[in-house]
Structures are given as structure tokens and as C-alpha cells.
Amino acid sequence: MSAAPQEESPDALRTLLRSFGQIVLQRNAATGACILAAWLVSDARLACAALTGAIAANVGAVLRGYDCNDTRDGLHGFNGALAALAAFTFISDDATAMAVAILAATAAAWLLGPWEQLLRSRGLGVYSSPCLLVTWAWLPFVHPALTHAAASGTVTWFDPLRGLLTGIAQTSFACSALAGALILGGIALSSMRAACFALLGAALATSLQWLAGANSASFDAGLLGFNGALVALAVADCGVLAALAGVGVSVALQQVAVFYGAPALTAPFVVATWTTRRLMRDTRRTRTNSPDRAPEDDAVVVHRKRTSRAALPER
């Protein structure tokens, strides 16, 4: 009688951890465990928020009848976790934050199906866009004029490393160098190449925004590098040049958002990834159809697409 729950329990835990791992585009329970540890060392409220959001989103996905394999891969839970993390980040009252977190996570899960169909019909991935739509829906009622605090300060020789790691931590709403190191280590457990791309993206984005005049408070909080790290992870399968271009686009978008005082969150990452991957597809299509180059066999193209999805699940 008790065998079934014992068999399902490890699978449920693995699904939950994979949901956390998908925040940094890794279908890996060990990566998710490292991210959970990062939340715990940064702020226990974040760990509670992510657990609440992922569970609510996964339950919502089951009720909606979504593909069970995608649920087990964490593709239905990570947007719920992000939506709940946003609620606990911007709402100080725990009771209110919990209520908003559950509602937002469930809404993100229910929105995912039709929104994913719309995006895929245009050749676009989902990424964290459901979380963005849901969060932007309630955020103006909590913070009518949300802007990051501006401050000036002196950067010492050790601060760049701390700011870089904190930027990686901010991919999951955490805010400490130790949390960033844990998340980077978790990515490395899944793919050393992905970890290198995340580090490269965070470093480039942080450097460009610092040169553009970003303040020390944003630098120390890691607000300059997280979108760059996510873009580099998302387009890693397209090569280094594509990653560099995508990071550049994300920096430009984030600078525009800062100028207008808009809460961009991960929107620069999402839009930059869409733009970069679309440009790469158009370039590849142009080269394939050029007269001086023989078209590739359909089987080769299909194999490449399957390999790309297996190496880096498109969210």
C-alpha cells in the first residue's frame, strides 16, 4: 500500500529541483539543488517563495492537462517559481506576498499553454515571459514608481568579482556573491560550457553597463549582469559571437529601461534572446539558400534541431 507514494516521492522532488534548474536553462536536479542552497544562504524567504511558486505552477499544469514529460522536466514549474520570487522581492508583508505568489504562479502556469502556442507559431521560445506578463500585471499596484536606488561609491579591487558573482545570483533573485558561486557551480554540474557562457555573459554585461555610467549600488547588487548571463546561456548553442551580440542587445534594452525608470526584470534577456535567435535563423537560411552553397539534407537539419534541444532545452 505504501510502495506507490515512496516511488513517486523521489520523482516529485526531482521535478521540483528541475523546475529550479530551468531558471538558468538547465534540466538538471543537481543544478536546482544548488539554486535552492543559494536561496537559503541569501534569504530563506526566497527559498519559501520558490518552493511555493513551483508547487503551485506544477499543480496548475497538471490541472490544465499539460504534457507530463514537460512537467517532469521542470518546464511548467520554473515560471511559477520566478513569479513567486518576484512577489516576495517586491512585497514586504509576508502574508500579502504569499497570497500574490500563489495566485501569480498559478496564473503563469495557466497562461503558459496558449502563450507558448502563440510564440512557437512565430518561432520563439517561452523563457521567462509568462512570469513577466503576470508580474507586470500586479506590480504597478504595489510599486507605482519602481526604480532601483541610485548611489555612488568607490569600487575596490575585490568588488568586481563580488559584483560579477552577485550578478549571476540575480538570475534567481538572490543577492550575494556566495549565492552566485553556488548557482555557477550548479550550472557547471550540468554543463561546464554553459557555466563558462554564463560567466562570460555576466562579465560582459556588467562591464558594458559600468562603462555606460551605472552606479555602484546597482553594481554591488548584481543588477548589471544577470540579463547578460541568461542571454549567453540561452544562445550558447549558437556560438560565442551570437552570445556576445545577444548580451550587447540586452545591455542596450536594460539601459533604455533604466532611463525610463521601468521595471524591466528579465525582459532584456527575453527580447535579446528572441532577436538573436531569429537573426541567427535568418542568416542560416540565407546561407543555405545561396547559389554557391549546396542545401543541407533534411535529415541533417532535423538531427541538428534535436541535438540543440537536447543540449539546451528551449523554454
Rank of each mutant, 00 (worst) to 15 (best):
M1V: 02
A4K: 05
P10H: 03
P10W: 12
A12V: 02
L13S: 14
L17W: 10
L17F: 03
S19K: 09
S19D: 10
F20E: 00
F20Q: 03
V24F: 08
R27N: 11
T31C: 12
D43N: 05
A44L: 08
R45C: 02
A54E: 00
A54H: 00
I55H: 04
A56K: 05
Y66M: 10
Y66I: 11
D67G: 09
C68W: 03
C68A: 04
G80V: 15
G80H: 14
D94V: 12
M98Q: 05
A104V: 11
W110A: 08
L112G: 00
L112Q: 02
E116C: 09
L119M: 07
L119V: 01
L119G: 01
R120F: 15
R122Q: 03
G123I: 04
V134D: 06
T135I: 03
W136E: 02
L139G: 11
A145N: 14
L146F: 14
T147M: 14
A150E: 11
A150K: 04
T154D: 11
V155G: 09
D159V: 02
P160I: 14
L161W: 05
G163P: 01
F173E: 10
A174P: 01
A177N: 00
A181I: 01
L184Q: 10
M192H: 14
M192Y: 13
R193V: 09
A195W: 12
L199S: 11
L200G: 07
G201M: 11
A203N: 11
A205D: 03
W210F: 01
A217E: 10
A217I: 07
D220P: 00
L224Y: 07
G225E: 06
F226E: 07
A229S: 14
A232S: 05
L233Y: 01
D237W: 12
C238W: 11
L241S: 11
L241T: 02
A245H: 14
V247W: 06
V247G: 03
V249H: 08
A252W: 04
Q255G: 06
V256N: 04
A257V: 05
A257T: 09
A262P: 05
L265H: 07
A267N: 10
V270N: 00
A272E: 06
T276H: 15
R277C: 08
R278M: 08
M280C: 15
D282A: 08
D282N: 00
R284Y: 03
D292V: 05
R293T: 10
P295H: 15
A299N: 13
V300N: 12
V301H: 13
V301C: 12
H303D: 09
R309H: 13
A310S: 06
A311Q: 08
